[in-house]
Computed example of a mutant assay.
Amino acid sequence: MSPLPTRLADGREILWFDEPGRPPRDPVALVDHRDLPRVVPASELRYDALAGEWITIAAHRQDRTYQPPPDQCPLCPSRDGKLTEIPAPSYDVVAFENRFPSFGSAPGAPPPPVTGDAPAPEAGRCEVVCFTDDHGTPFVRLPPERVRLVLEAWAQRTAELGARPGVRYVFPFENRGAEIGVTLSHPHGQIYAYPYVPPFPERMLSRVAAHRVATGENLFDVLLARERAGERVVVAGEHWTAFVPRAARWPVEVHLYPHRPTPDLPALDEAQRAEFGLVYLDVLRRLDALYDDELPYVAAWQQAPVRPGDGRADARLHLRLHSVRRAPGKIKYLAGSESGAGAFISDVRPEAVAERLRAL
């Protein structure tokens, strides 16, 4: 799928993904009439030598838009005299450069040349993906054909961003709910194109590589086979299975894997793409029924790094969704053990959560 690219008033790129059957858009009509200053990211990467992790300092994000009222939402379409980030009276799915990015160069500037192993924050990119122009329709209430379009947008952006010089990992994700820290309530997600491989996928791929050396097997494939045959399956389709992992860190945690070994979103075949929305919407409906309320969650795609040397060959695409809500009105906080020692302690048995979700 090839989106229509245009520019916002400050030079940031916006890409229009339309459902089949919509009349072609006229780029001349997609003009952003706002008077916006140019965005110049001022990010800095610093290395924590003891943890072996890169930390991003992005002080300019302190001034980002924070929980505006619905009538001032910057992600709604531009209409009735209100100008927003999307310069059109309606849209299906759009992706655009974040106005307050953690990474990235000045809008319109090419990414810098790669000059070594040290990551440069200006080589990365942060994008916002809006799933619908309806402010009150969360992902769980999108029709399957819209979920398919969102999936196509994720895949297209993964391929395009992964081809940029200096990018090593592409990470699409959605945060939902104030408890998660969402600053804009309009249904949307983000995509981070990191100039390094983030710590969590890096640790996973390190374990997978060690297992490959010891056994000749792919650890992702081994664990998926075990879960599909076990008691923690929540929803099973022909091409996807959703399950609560045996060592779930969070009070509610569900992983969604394609059955065929698939490295990343662009590598999904037609059958996988067609079934994803049906299985995922089923999972989301069960999650909202768990406490009879919209469950706050983070849904994050784990996929193959861009470079072969980062473990790309053994990576397996999967979606990890988790919630901090442990009971109605109660939140699982990352307290002393989790935030201080990095050791998760769960208050619920994963088998009990899977059983409840299956029964809903």
Rank of each mutant, 00 (worst) to 15 (best):
G340W: 02
E238D: 01
V39N: 02
D35S: 14
A51I: 04
H60E: 07
P296I: 11
E127A: 08
F173R: 06
H186Q: 12
D48R: 00
A163S: 15
R46E: 06
P119L: 14
A248R: 08
R38V: 14
W240A: 00
R148Q: 12
P144M: 13
L278Y: 07
S185W: 11
A9I: 15
E275G: 04
S43E: 08
V234C: 07
Y169A: 02
E338Q: 11
D314G: 03
A193C: 04
H135Y: 09
D221E: 04
A300K: 03
P165F: 15
F220A: 11
L142E: 15
A299K: 11
E160S: 13
P201Q: 14
V353E: 02
E238Y: 00
H188P: 03
R22Q: 00
P350V: 05
A42M: 09
Q67D: 15
L219P: 05
P74F: 01
P111Q: 09
F131K: 02
H239M: 04
R249M: 05
A341H: 05
Q303Y: 09
T6N: 06
A335Y: 13
E19G: 05
D71R: 01
D264N: 09
T115F: 10
P37L: 04
R164M: 13
P69Q: 14
P113I: 03
L83C: 02
V222W: 01
P165N: 10
L290M: 06
R203Q: 11
M204Y: 00
V252Y: 05
I86E: 02
G311K: 04
R207G: 07
D133A: 00
C76M: 03
A209D: 13
L15N: 02
P24M: 09
R203C: 05
E145A: 06
W240K: 00
F276W: 01
A267V: 01
F344R: 05
G342N: 01
E270C: 03
D32C: 06
L223W: 08
Y297C: 06
G342F: 02
G189A: 10
S339N: 07
P111M: 14
E355G: 11
P201E: 15
P199K: 13
T84A: 03
R285V: 09
R176S: 15
P69T: 12
Q303I: 08
D347Q: 05
E122D: 13
V254Q: 10
I86K: 01
P305H: 10
R25A: 12
